[in-house]
Nucleic acid binder design. Structure first.
Lengths: 222, 222
DNA sequence: CCTACCGATCGGTAGG
DNA sequence: CCTACCGATCGGTAGG
């Protein structure tokens, strides 16, 4: 048998290729992410991560130092992944908006944000973040700003296109955006966090009502 | 030395008095509650609970069976304690309300609920509930109903006194109450859950804006 | 990079 | 009711 002959481009031993190393790194992070999000910090052992990622514990510790550091890397990576689709919100019309155009736009934006917020991945991320917030206090504020904060800023920019906040009673676009998001997410995000199955048929009506109330178009009949 | 002479009404040994037993039971539950809420389920060992409550582990296991059962008892007790002050909401006017009276009433109710929701005890309870929701799925729905659900029903009853929902665009008092609560809690409850210090000076303005938007009185200047 | 181990800690129980 | 222990599992490391 010839020693260390590559098959499918893989080395049979020795130092891995640079791209092979990068691939393993990514795979390790993916595996660790899935396990942490599914079973929490305490429920995921370094032994299990090593076994599932096809490496040994010493490699884990050589790369990340300790369990906390690996967990932090997983959280940062996950928040990045989660925040990315929100950039679609930035591709909204840049010109001024009439109120009549704002209503359907807010419905679309609201539905989009709600759908993004109740995916199993998003819920698992927020849950594990919540449960470990006490142990990683420096990160909670950062991630809250990258999550909720980023959405608020996007929506506030939208609102400024349609509303003259200097003449509004609220006078603060970010507060208004915050209230809009609160209306849209509300109970559904709480329930998702508790693992309660969400009644998807209620989403449409909730969004519609939320937008109407927000724009002062209901709920009291006129 | 005379054996087993009571001092301060306590027995020096043997079977405890009935009231003494009840007192120990309550003390044990209080101690376990504080530890579970401060350090989470995995972060609290039965050894630590036994030591802090001044008893031995065998007594713990004789009374509760295992750690899960003790944890469940703690959660139920805590949710009961938390839901009690909400009954004050039931002592609202029973007669019909004019819209003009509804605004200050909603401000008071909203502030009260928000204040109750961001106390350290309430936050800790929700956090530990969230982090263990996956392990205790049967309980999550029950406790959600006893918490958020109870508040929604209270507020819905209030709204029905002032609004004719059959002629409203929303047409559902519970959805309206749900949206009102969402507005009031919103970002602040999320931040509290993540352990982020809350800017208390922002509470007043948020409540006012929430009520105005909810009642269709803002935010667009008229 | 793997195996095998370290000390510590856990939930739960036997024995008296 | 207390002490002392059980097997299991953990995070992390030595040794080669």
């Amino acid at each position: 048998m010839a020693a260390a002959v590559a098959r499918d481009g893989k080395h049979a031993g020795g130092r891995p290729t640079r791209e092979e190393a990068a691939r393993r790194e990514e795979r390790l992070l993916d595996v660790a992410t899935a396990m942490f999000l599914d079973n929490g910090y305490d429920g995921t052992s370094m032994d299990a991560i090593a076994a599932a990622s096809g490496t040994g514990k010493p490699s884990l510790y050589a790369r990340y130092g300790d369990k906390r550091a690996l967990f932090l890397a997983v959280l940062r990576h996950s928040v990045d992944l989660w925040a990315r689709p929100l950039s679609e919100l930035g591709q909204c019309p840049q010109h001024a908006l009439r109120l009549a155009d704002l209503e359907p736009l807010l419905e679309r934006v609201g539905r989009h944000i709600l759908e993004c917020s109740i995916t199993p991945e998003s819920v698992a991320l927020k849950r594990v973040l919540t449960s470990q917030a006490g142990q990683f206090p420096e990160l909670a504020a950062t991630l809250q700003d990258a999550g909720w904060g980023a959405i608020v800023r996007h929506v506030a920019a939208l609102l400024r296109l349609a509303v003259d906040f200097e003449r509004s009673d609220v006078a603060d676009a970010e507060l208004a955006a915050d209230l809009f998001l609160s209306l849209v997410l509300g109970r559904l995000s709480h329930e998702a966090l508790l693992g309660i199955e969400i009644d998807r048929s209620a989403i449409g009506g909730r969004i519609t009502a939320a937008v109407k109330i927000f724009l002062g178009l209901g709920f009291v009949a006129r």
